[in-house]
């Protein structure tokens, strides 16, 4: 796995803890959404040390007020065609006002990276075989967009009227 964050290859300092394993005393960890629901009251870690892995079947609005507890939320792409995580990411950014890292995991496809990025996803787990430089180029294949999204880029209807 190659982690790309904010457009650059990055090292992953998060440990992804299985439900059957105990949480380490210190360090940044992610846990499953199910574990969060059952252990939330006993977890005392701050957001810089706590992330959650969100299945794509959970309504992102359910994260709601909890979003501030997390420094990382992973969203899942089971395959190229399952686009639920795009909506989840947008809702996390726009409604839960989540400012931490949103990381795409699962079947992350080069030609979808810019869609993901526009929906507010700022980190990607690329497959080992990915030609990283070529994949990073996918993030800037388009610089014109027909609709607003969760990135801060201008969109065409506004640009036409001289507004950003």
């Amino acid at each position: 796995m190659v982690l790309v964050k904010n457009g650059q290859v990055a090292s992953d300092y998060w440990q992804h803890i299985e439900d059957t394993d105990p949480l380490p005393q210190a360090g940044a960890v992610t846990i499953s959404w199910a574990r969060w629901l059952s252990e939330r009251d006993s977890i005392t870690r701050g957001p810089s040390e706590l992330g959650v892995r969100l299945p794509n079947t959970i309504a992102a609005d359910d994260v709601g007020a909890d979003a501030g507890r997390f420094g990382l939320i992973t969203v899942t792409y089971p395959n190229i065609g399952d686009g639920r995580a795009y909506s989840q990411a947008r809702i996390l950014r726009s409604r839960a006002a989540f400012k931490g890292e949103i990381r795409a995991i699962g079947s992350v496809v080069r030609d979808q990276l810019q869609f993901m990025q526009r929906c507010g996803i700022d980190a990607f787990e690329l497959p080992e075989k990915a030609l990283t430089e070529d994949w990073l180029a996918a993030l800037s294949e388009f610089d014109l967009f027909y609709q607003p999204a969760e990135d801060s880029r201008p969109w065409i209807a506004r640009q036409r009227h001289g507004r950003n």
């Binding site: 399952d82 686009g83 795009y86 869609f115 027909y146 209807a157």
Partner: peptide, 13 residues
């Protein structure tokens, strides 16, 4: 047409 073209959220329905 313009809004739906390469819509980042709705291209994988």
């Amino acid at each position: 047409r313009q809004w739906s073209t390469l819509h980042p959220e709705f291209s994988w329905l």
